[in-house]
Amino acid sequence: MKNKIFKLVFILPIIIYSIVLVLLPLLYVLFLSFLTSDSYGGIIYSFTFKNYLNILEFTYIKMFIKSSLIAIITTVICILISYPFALILRTKSKNFQNIATKLIMIPFLTNSLIRTYGWIILLRKSGVINTTLLTLGVINKPLSLMYNNLGIIIGMVYTLLPFMLLPVCSSVLAIDNSLIEAGRDLGAKPLQIFKKIILPQTLSGVFNGSLMVFIPAIGYFFISDILGGGKTMIIGNLIKNQFLSARNWPFGSAISVFLIIVTFFLVKIYKHFGGKMDDLGGF
């Protein structure tokens, strides 16, 4: 009897949690996506596929492509920064590695919105970067660093880089030194070592980071709002507008369901390449 209660204490919360706070909300969104909205934003309980057909409109497809491109570019830039960073970090002392990985987390402890705001001060026409470059005479006309796609990408890379740095670093740092030494002893060139030893062992770390960067990058509406000047909509903006301004919850839900499907698909690929689910949440 006592054991039974004990068991209940340990499994009941998670069952309630995963059903009430995870499954139900998602099922409800799925349900909403088949409904219709009236012109005032109310929900009409009549079944339709219209919202999904609406997604296929040229205007929206164009936006999805643009948004995905921004996310892909962000992901690639993050990989290009994280790999060399991790490889260099390998050559440093354990203490240095420890401090470095801690330092990566520090920016997180101030709200990402505040940091995005810091970028406005830096990037705008009369901002710190432009004024510095102008006074140094490097440029004679201020550069357009924000209120365009460049601004969005800078903001995305900045906000999401730690999500790539951490898994890549931990997978690169986990490689056994003796493997690399053995490779070197056998006369392998650095590039060969990278291709044959480092890359295969760190691939899942890179995939992990890519998931954690790409998925938020299609949804972080505040970055495109603030650094893109409202000129570029990403999928996140579109969903936010449907829920908060256009008042078309069913259409917003349909886009969300579409995103969930894309996410599952990406996770499948990740698992296919040997990625473990637990690694996704472990930093």
Partner: peptide, 25 residues
């Protein structure tokens, strides 16, 4: 099995989807 699968959802799905689904519920 279901629970084991559900707990990964908040980690992987876009925050905005989690946000609107909670708002809806």
């Amino acid at each position: 099995n279901l629970v084991n699968w559900l707990i990964y959802i908040p980690i992987v799905i876009p925050e905005i989807v989690l946000g609107i689904s909670l708002l809806s519920i």
